[in-house]
Amino acid sequence: MSIFLFRRFLAFLVAFFLTSILIFVLVRVIGGNPATTLLGEYSTPEAVREIEIQLGLDRPIVIQYFEWIINLCSGDLGTSFRSGLEVNYLLASAIPVSISLSIGALIVAVLIGFPLGIISAVKSYRGSGTALDFFSQIGVAMPIFWSGALLSMFFGVRLGLLPTGGWVGWSENYAQSLRHLVLPSIALGIGIGSVITRFVRTAVVEVMRQDYVRTGRAFGMSEYRALFSIGLRNASLPIVTVLGNIVSHLVGGTVITETLFSMPGLSRMILDNVISRDILVVQNLVMIIVVYILIVNFIVDISYFSLDKRLRVK
């Protein structure tokens, strides 16, 4: 166990440093001089020089990189040049929004995906299975901005049941927060849920086709017992792998959803800073997302380990 974890952790560190170097270099190469970017095309050399000193850009690039990493690791994400506010302070309000949306969407996705996937697997030879398959195809193909717009038009504008956008902090009024979360979570969750449906279906059908399911049934296991005690358990490995990927993709979906429902989350913050050309802040925020995805993958690896007991035996 410990060796396995240690190896995974090493892989995590390697991935962290490689992506950080990549992001750092990309920002320098494509973005050019962050100081010039910040001040615009027509800035004077003196002003640029002043900003460079202020941001530490005059020092050797290797030192800049390590300083950045050390700051990141110690939790110092710098100051937004435009607003003069600490990035940490801005994040404190943005991250809860993004996490709420991600979790909400995941809950919706899992609630849709697992039951429908299992039903569709059990009925895979029958008409209802095919119908479910058809709807999950539509769900996968439907873009968020379209399903989101439809949802807010119907539930928000037509029925007036739920707010069509914006955000109320959890500490202010959690009931309102929940109400604000419903439509974006569904909009984002439908697509992901459809993907999960399809994967659960395939994984379960594949497992139920295996000889050892027949063996179980030959010794008196009922069809449903076989489905739950063998089918789902053995199908969980491929499903967890897919879930890990889905969570990574969730980040992309969050950007669109936050914009669509004007939610002040992490993606909005990145977008704002891109627009205001505060490239060093963007660099930090992107790195946060990278760390988030790496952590999710790390968790997936660990759950793999706890699901597949064979990995523990040598």
């Binding site: 000889d211 050892y212 027949r214 063996t215 179980g216 030959a218 358990r233 053995n234 597949d308 064979r310």
Partner: peptide, 14 residues
């Protein structure tokens, strides 16, 4: 009851 053919696939690998 039944004894199956291919013992590797007939037993639950997990």
């Amino acid at each position: 009851s039944m004894v199956f053919q291919d013992s590797l696939s007939a037993l639950n690998p997990m």
